[in-house]
């Protein structure tokens, strides 16, 4: 886009108005990806600052082969991952999760969630429960879930960004989904029991 080209050229020269325009255009999208990964508004804000500082310093390296959004979006993900690594090195928390294995699922009485999820009215209780489940998900699993299922990157793209193998992305994604499924399954079980009582 010519407008974007001239905006980037002006930003390269240090034009404050152009830089402000870049911030206005891209920060909402980038703030949200950082927030999805970091789950904390202050950390997301810090990652966003890092993103723009890095992007402006490296603007000469942007060759225009990809869209500017794709380029800066990757910088934002990397800044968020860096913040996560710092956070992880501070905490000694185990980065593993418990998910039901095959035998356990087989032994359970599964209930049909039946409702069409796109039509189901999500209650506040349900939203809260899902938010809490994502918060409880260890960051190495959450990041994969965010990149694959929320940001809709391909398995290959997620593997490249995270610096792990495709197989590892698949394993983490499966475990993350099963962990998040458990929270919803408990909700649907309770709802069904409550319906039965009334």
């Amino acid at each position: 886009m010519t407008n974007e080209k001239s905006l980037l050229a002006a930003a390269r020269r240090g034009d404050e108005r152009a830089i402000r325009k870049l911030i206005d255009s891209y920060s909402p999208r980038l703030y949200n990806v950082a927030l999805r990964i970091l789950r904390n508004s202050q950390d997301a804000e810090d990652a966003l600052q890092e993103t723009f500082i890095t992007a402006l310093n490296k603007l000469d390296q942007f060759d225009g082969r990809s869209a500017f959004l794709t380029w800066i979006y990757r910088i934002a993900i990397n800044a968020s991952l860096m913040a996560l690594r710092k956070r992880r090195s501070r905490s000694k928390r185990e980065e593993s999760i418990e998910v039901p294995e095959f035998e356990e699922i087989q032994s359970r009485q599964l209930i049909d969630w039946n409702a069409d999820p796109s039509r189901r009215v999500m209650t506040n209780e349900m939203r809260e429960l899902m938010d809490k489940a994502i918060d409880r998900l260890p960051s190495n699993y959450r990041t994969v879930f965010v990149l694959r299922d929320l940001e809709e990157l391909s398995t290959d793209e997620a593997a490249k960004i995270l610096g792990i193998s495709v197989a590892n992305v698949k394993v983490r994604l499966m475990r993350a989904r099963l962990f998040l499924r458990e929270a919803l399954d408990a909700y649907f079980h309770e709802s069904k029991e409550a319906e039965g009582r009334s």
Partner: peptide, 22 residues
């Protein structure tokens, strides 16, 4: 039921993921 629930898990979490205002 199992496959359906995993598929709906993705749909529901995605539907719950609204962009936050900065």
């Amino acid at each position: 039921i199992y496959v359906d629930s995993v598929r709906k898990t993705i749909v529901l979490y995605k539907a719950n993921d609204k962009a936050k205002k900065m």
